[in-house]
Design a protein around this nucleic acid. Structure first.
Lengths: 328, 328
DNA sequence: CTGAAAGCGCTTACAG
DNA sequence: CTGAAAGCGCTTACAG
């Protein structure tokens, strides 16, 4: 026999499908005898309710979509892991969408998720001008990204992070630190804090932006060329992978770290710090970011009304901290 | 108005729901006029077919479950990313299940996936004795894991990988290399190849197994203690994160790498090599592993009959290669 | 070429 | 305390 359905259980237990459904959902009064008979039939048949049918009726799928650049990146991998864990603990499943810095893909995923009637969407990408977020009808929560005035943003304190990193470099003797980031747009608080802090100390800020869609090899070449051509006694990289790339370049070219070149990264994912605990970096509270993103979304899903409050809570940035290694 | 449904489109276009469905699915002959009217109604209403209803009818969900230890690990993150990409290109969605080295969680996920009527499951964890795989009724494909005689295994050539790494260490002058791995069970081909290669050169193999569920701090402590107490002029680590951990220990304790200590890792994920291109490691073809896993599963789903052939293809291990860095 | 009706596997008022 | 019937939003034979 193929998969048993409610009818089969009902027949076996000698009751109606209504009754079986009630036992399964523990609704209303059922005699102990009936409960037992149904339980037996379920066990004997190895019956498992079809969640798809349930979703169709309930008008909710307990499904959430997560859109990220790629979980191959340790930061997003860890974030995704944490979000999934929090969702699972609340009975939600998660559809993973790796959009690979591709705005078109992201728009398609957005469509797909809604066609699959997800209860909500968490998005954390850097693509600009993605079609569809404005007319989405599922609740959305963004991680470190501004999508629109009615979409809550979960993030950590980028401004403080930028200040910590830059201030630290200066305190360690750096006078000509450069900030390396993907894009240097107005909303980039880390860049703003870097500039501010440099100026506060009478130093000249320099920002190297390599662009999101630049393939890894070119990205590396670009950064190395810049470092060769421009004298810098400090590097503040907006992510750890880039910081480690610079560290390897320093080793290759004989720069002494931290004596002549101080390096500070950003993110502080478990994997990065496990691989290279010596890296000075600004640690984002990835666990808290993920948990809060999941919780904020669930709140929007389950109590659509107290939106304003939850949005306010969401906006307060989570604290970051400086992890001091030997690279600075 | 809430979400429009087929009925609304039909009413607007002035046709029956049957006809709308047919236009949407491009089934049978439709007059150009009708096609146009329906298309207009769909556009005007912003109609999107409910995939849940479709799944219920079609008896297939185009949903696949992926069970991994955690995507926070760069290797599994990259694998998950690749699998998801391949699945998406074939019109499948992916439910992510991070089971965190927890066999109980894994069993629950297995239940959940089937209750949600996934068309298939890809699993890549190291838990032993997980309940439920034997009585699962969805097609399953395993990545680098033996689950049962009828479940195809996608993997790369662990035996060659183990030989390459060990042989390389010896060629670089190591006489007392240790192999560090999670568990040293009989199915561990890398361990077997390490032992074999050591013995072939008349050297004594030593294996340090830290256990999967050991928390990261203890794992590090355990490995560092072992390295302190036992003299080793080479380390072959079964994953890159562990290799990098050893490298950092060497730096801290003043060991000269590679002169007095040679280090070789395993996996070669993009993230690891980006962060530390200097690490000598055995590169697994993660892209190919992911793509093949997804393809093998889709084949099992869509043509359940030619199983035997696809299983054979799946069994042939994919080639690995040694990436030579400066750590050896 | 188009439509009315049955059905996918469940849940939920509504009766009794 | 339990059951018959309607319905979730679609697709698919079956008529016409």
């Amino acid at each position: 026999m193929s998969r048993p359905k409610l009818q089969d259980v009902a027949a076996r237990a000698g009751v109606s499908v209504t009754t079986v459904s009630r036992v399964l959902n523990d609704r209303g009064y059922l005699s102990a005898d009936i409960r037992r008979r149904v339980a037996e039939a379920v066990a004997e048949l190895g019956y498992r309710p079809n969640e798809i049918a349930r979703s169709l009726i309930g008008q909710k799928s307990r499904l959430v979509g997560l859109i990220v650049p790629t979980v191959a990146d340790p930061f997003f991998g860890e974030l995704a892991s944490r979000i999934e864990g929090e969702l699972a603990s609340k009975g939600y499943k998660m559809l993973l969408c790796d959009c690979l810095e591709n705005a078109e893909r992201e728009a398609e995923y957005l469509e797909m998720l809604q066609a699959n009637r997800v209860d909500g969407i968490i998005t954390s990408t850097h693509n600009r001008n993605v079609e569809g977020y404005d007319r989405a009808d599922a609740p959305i929560v963004a991680v470190d990204r501004r999508l629109g005035s009615d979409i809550p943003i979960i993030r950590s304190d980028n401004r403080t992070g930028g200040r910590l990193a830059t201030g630290h470099l200066i305190a360690r003797g750096s006078r000509s630190a450069v900030f390396i980031t993907a894009t240097d747009h107005p909303g980039n608080d880390r860049a703003a804090a870097y500039r501010e802090t440099m100026r506060d100390h009478g130093l000249d800020p320099r920002v190297l932006a390599y662009g999101y869609s630049t393939p890894m090899r070119q990205r590396r070449a670009l950064i190395e060329t810049w470092l060769m051509d421009n004298d810098a006694d400090g590097v503040f990289a907006s992510d750890d992978l880039t910081a480690l790339m610079v560290l390897e370049w320093a080793r290759k070219t004989g720069r002494r770290v931290p004596d002549t070149l101080r390096i500070v990264g950003y993110d502080g994912s478990r994997a990065a710090l496990l691989a290279m605990p010596g890296l000075t970096t600004v640690r984002q509270p990835i666990d808290a970011l993920g948990a809060r993103a999941a919780q904020a979304l669930i709140r929007r899903i389950e109590t659509p009304d107290d939106d304003r409050e939850s949005r306010l809570a969401a906006e307060a940035p989570l604290p970051v901290e400086l992890h001091q290694g030997w690279t600075s």
